[in-house]
Write a protein that binds this DNA or RNA. Structure first.
Lengths: 329, 329
DNA sequence: CTTGCAATATGAAACGTTACATATGCCGTG
DNA sequence: CACGGCATATGTAACGTTTCATATTGCAAG
């Protein structure tokens, strides 16, 4: 019942194969070695069930082939898709993913950084909210959705463009009284630009655009009363609503219908994110789709890029529009 | 622009503090050491920005404080909740989580096992489909939802009880013509018992119970024609349907309504899993709720338990019923 | 003022690798 | 036949820890 069944080491393999230690090392590092030697080593390793010890290797080489992924949460559909995509992109490059969840807590974020640094990861991909995270400047770091400084690459969707796209779509569908709806996260970030882009379109046309910031902790009551105060004889004062994300859009849709406002007939509704919902692949709301796979690919790409001298400080990836039943098209 | 800014080591700290190497080690392992020494070491470490090197420590101690979590996918709501819960349960015990995704591919599962073994994890929690996975018997392994052998602990919800519960609920609501609906995964596992439990209740009452196994690759057409052939003048031959999971239930609900069958008025529908949907906390179908948090807690508990001599081979956790609009209550 | 003992700090060896300087063998050439 | 040069295998010194046998210190007792 002993759990210390000492695993075979290179030394064992070397003895078994009758070759030198260094030769075994070469075989497992794909360094040219005589064909007969290589065979004997492989054979001996198979017999002994030898496996390279990553910890010894990591200690020696200072390279661990592991990266940390720091996220607030992975049950939110957008985050879960992102996590999956990043994990797969890393795996495709033979990297392990160390997953750290922060629950949106800035201190937890810092603790995670600390922990994965001790763990000698080769890099960190973080989606964080702590405005002054401290991270070893010598450790590759890629930030998603939050810009830190010129020498920390930030990868994000084209949030500004997405906001514009939503506005243009609503215009095209004949809307003239737009409402922008968001939940205030408390920390500035790239997603704020959704509003900037949205508003810029209306302003350019000389149209007014109302915006409402909900506070997460206050729930939906403020919104309900806001709506009531903007209704006149069952008619809503807005004919187009852009929500900062799909989760919000779905809830807004439910509340509107509850109030007797028909979607999309009375008001057109567009969300943001565009993750595949449930198992089924269709959308529950019209939305601006973030290119999740490309976000992940790009982040990993930047993280593992050998030449770190000319990294971009911000990469914006193009979004697209996907109708989903809450707009006429 | 050099990225090899050699991090300070214990030796550096020892020199800086004017103490021996071993003393520094003791300080960072909470081994009693003279108070003045301890202070000097702490101080020196702070000045140098010293951090323990987990790889050196892991090599020496053969303990890495990391565990692997092997899952098919984390975008599926149930898996994403499970992953989150496991990750958090591990973090609460100071363990890192190495996340490996397999996409339901048995060979990928084996490769993941291989990889995390090389990586000297302290244990593996796996939700896998490969019936003959090979894993080092000396490495703690906990299986979720799939029973392997008496000495590999398996953690699962009480699937049999859940099936019974669903049946009893339908009975209670007056159903007498039940249908069980599942997607055939191709590999036997604990979730199969949902059917066993469900059926046992009807049989005991002398009632017949129909069951239909959909094949994932065939889509929903077979189901649609099955339904049509079981309808008589717009009336469905069943008054209660139990789906093997919520994702299926949600799709079935949509199809039923499309066919003019009202839920829950014409037929009552119960799913299985009970994960929190979207951001909003309400359910889109009545369901048997799996205790995700307890599944995770229990798995981690078994994985890290010191005394591995008397591990249970199967732990069943109690499920509960949650109405969600697709039943009368 | 010794001596002995307990308490505590010290430093070398080892963990399983990689990398490099050295040793070995082989072959062609003078 | 001896020698230089090349290719390839060898073995040792790190990497940054922990651990344990040993050295040092302080203090009480003889």
């Amino acid at each position: 019942m002993k759990r210390k069944e000492n695993a075979p080491t290179m030394k064992d393999v070397a003895r078994e194969a009758g070759v030198a230690l260094g030769t075994v090392s070469k075989v497992f590092n794909d360094i040219p070695v005589g064909e007969d030697y290589r065979r004997r080593v492989k054979e001996a390793a198979r017999r002994l069930g030898y496996q390279v010890n990553s910890y010894a290797r990591g200690l020696k080489t200072n390279k661990t082939y592991s990266a940390a992924l720091i996220l607030p949460d992975i049950t939110t559909p957008f985050f879960s898709e992102l996590a999956q995509a990043v994990c797969q992109a890393l795996a495709a490059r033979q990297y392990k993913t160390i997953l750290s969840l922060t629950a949106f807590d800035p201190e937890a974020e810092q603790r995670c950084i600390q922990m994965v640094q001790q763990n000698k990861v080769d890099g960190i991909i973080g989606l964080t909210y702590n405005p002054n995270l401290k991270v070893d400047p010598d450790l590759p770091y890629v930030s998603i959705d939050r810009y830190f400084s010129p020498n920390v690459p930030c990868v994000a969707s084209d949030n500004f463009g997405g906001g514009q796209l939503a506005a243009e779509k609503l215009l095209e569908l004949g809307c003239a009284r737009p409402l922008f709806l968001r939940i205030w996260s408390g920390v500035p970030g790239e997603p704020d630009k959704r509003w900037d882009g949205f508003e810029s379109v209306w302003r350019r046309r000389g149209l007014d655009c109302t915006s409402l910031h909900l506070k997460d902790e206050e729930g939906f009551e403020p919104f309900r009363s806001f709506l009531s105060s903007h209704m006149d004889q069952g008619r809503l004062a807005f004919d187009g609503i852009f929500c900062v994300n799909d989760a919000l859009a779905v809830r807004v849709r439910a509340m509107l219908e509850e109030l007797g406002v028909r979607v999309p007939d009375d008001v057109q509704l567009i969300g943001f994110d565009g993750v595949r919902r449930f198992i089924t692949e269709d959308f529950h709301c019209s939305t601006i789709v973030q290119p999740v796979l490309r976000l992940a690919e790009t982040s990993v790409d930047l993280l593992l890029r050998e030449d770190r001298s000319n990294l971009p400080s911000l990469v914006c990836l193009p979004v697209s529009y996907a109708p989903g039943g809450t707009t006429w098209e």
